[in-house]
Simulated assay, not measured.
Amino acid sequence: MSPVPRRAARRPASAGAELPRWVLAPAAVGALLVLLPLAALVLQVDWADLPALLSSEASRAALALSLRTSAAATALCVLLGVPMALVLARTSLPGLRVLRSLVLLPLVLPPVVGGLALLHAFGRRGLLGGQLEALGVSIAFTTAAVVLAQTFVALPFLVVSLEGALRTAGRRHEEVAAVLGAGPWTVLRRVTLPVVLPGLASGVVLSFARALGEFGATLTFAGSLQGTTRTLPLEVYLQRETDPDAAVALALLLVVVAAVVVVAVRGRPAL
């Protein structure tokens, strides 16, 4: 009778997942590429004059405008993006892949090109702008143009986050609720949205951050009028030529906001 072969000792799961050592070198270079400029920016800040630089009239006006317009753009992203994500994730309409590609186009489109497209759509001589002008409604180079530009670039972030959460969650809970007699609106309000709430929250935070940092589309479509269209990124760009210390201080403020956003998004539990 042949001896029974012994089973090989089970190796820990992490033992088979070891990476080649050469990976560490390019990973370190990539980390330095991200962290070194940020460290240089922090070292360049004049901490003694920082409160005065951030409290100047131009800085306060740009910050207040950015916060207002970013909040309005985020609200528009939620109002428009949630239905769009539901359609992309829960329907099988013809041409859905093309629609998804068009919705996500602003993610890869240069912001300046997006601003130019908005100008030709809503400008005084644009596709819809001319008709709106005849009704006494002007959008280009106003605060409303800032909100539209920010919404244009930030909307895909919410759609991507929420659509991914919807696909990960699946339809099992929704089907059970429907079998129990719940109507479509009740299923959406009581089942679907609560299940994907972390994904929706992440999308909202990312949309707000993208709107707050928008530059190219805003400059092209809304211009740079202090108190009306000059947001914080535009103020940083203008101060770079006239007051470099103020530009560095405002840039640091944007870095802090971005860091808070990253922590808020990454700190959320995965679905």
Rank of each mutant, 00 (worst) to 15 (best):
F221P: 07
A246Q: 15
V205F: 03
A217W: 01
A217F: 05
L206Q: 06
T242H: 10
L234H: 03
T242E: 12
A222Y: 01
L238A: 13
E235I: 00
L254T: 11
L219R: 03
L206I: 08
T220R: 04
A258T: 08
V236C: 04
L212I: 06
G223F: 06
L225I: 13
Q226W: 00
A217T: 00
A251D: 05
L250S: 07
R210M: 10
G223S: 06
A251W: 00
P198I: 07
V205G: 03
L206R: 02
R230N: 06
L250D: 11
L197Y: 07
T228Q: 15
V256C: 14
L200E: 07
L200R: 09
L197Q: 14
G203Q: 04
F208H: 09
G199W: 06
L238Q: 13
V236K: 08
E235T: 00
V236N: 04
T229Y: 12
L206P: 09
L252P: 10
V255M: 15
A251H: 01
L250H: 08
F221L: 12
S207W: 01
D243I: 03
A247T: 00
Q226E: 14
P233D: 08
S224I: 02
G203I: 01
F221K: 10
A246V: 02
A201W: 01
A217V: 00
P244M: 09
L212G: 03
S202R: 09
L238C: 00
R210N: 06
L200I: 04
V255L: 15
F208V: 04
S207C: 13
V255F: 14
A211I: 00
